[in-house]
Amino acid sequence: MRLPRSLVGWFYVSPLMLVLIPFFVLPMVVIITASVLEGDGFGGIMPFFTTQNYIDVFGSGLTFNLYFSTIKFTILTWVFSLIIGFWVAYFLVFHVKNQLLAIGLFLVCTVPFWTSNIIRMISWIPLLGKEGLVNMILQGLGIIDKPLEFLLFSDFAVVVAYVHQLTIFMIVPIFNSMARIDKRVVEAALDAGASRFDIMRYIIVPLSKSGMALGSIFVVSIVMGDFFVVRVMSGGGSASVVAALYEDISVLQYPPAAANAVVLVLVVMLMIGLILRTVDIRREIAR
């Protein structure tokens, strides 16, 4: 009478699979395939097996520079967004006593998420530029006499733009996991004589780990896959793995780009895998 449970499950996820297979699994298969074939240099791919694309990727010093720079941006962005995200979430959950106000302030933090990322990035230009607001103010106050050059079109600007865009991805999951901490646990710890530092160390950090992991997944995967912010905000001074990939594509070099892409996907999966090891994400989401 009743269908077996697994069959019902697969029936319900079938629409999802109908999207994921042609638009995630197959494209990945195509890229892996293209990465071991020869290109004709005009955007065509020829059915001849070769490992040359990978040899080129690993043989080029440029590859390592690109990964070095991309991973540097990833780590910097991760660290800053985690620190800011953690303390903002902590402030909202544990210091704002009025719950309605806390939710209101939380929404204030999330509203920019609903606006265009690109526009948010561009919005730093009138601030950080050579004739921008920051330089104008600093010069006006007499702190500096020459405009600071490093503010825009630099690595600094890249990190600023990333942190500006991605801290929200930390705040939301950390806020969620912190909001679920039973306040009586904290009171019990206080009664047991724990200092505020102990509470932070033994209660709040462990219990919000899942939120931090989830946020880290978003931040790491987005920065690793970005080429747009790097390109605009560094003024061409820095590149990223995907930016280089995009260059290859623009000159129709599909197989080398595919080999690059496979390596990149493996690196990203490895990083996400490391994060997933720290927490059972599935259980945490369902909690």
């Binding site: 990945m28 195509v30 997944i217 599909y254 892409a261 990149l264």
Partner: peptide, 18 residues
């Protein structure tokens, strides 16, 4: 999770090639 974290441009290229 894989589909979520896959670099967007890579996926786009894959779909384009497909």
């Amino acid at each position: 999770i894989g589909s979520l974290v896959a670099p967007g441009l890579v996926l786009g290229i894959g779909v384009g090639l497909l």
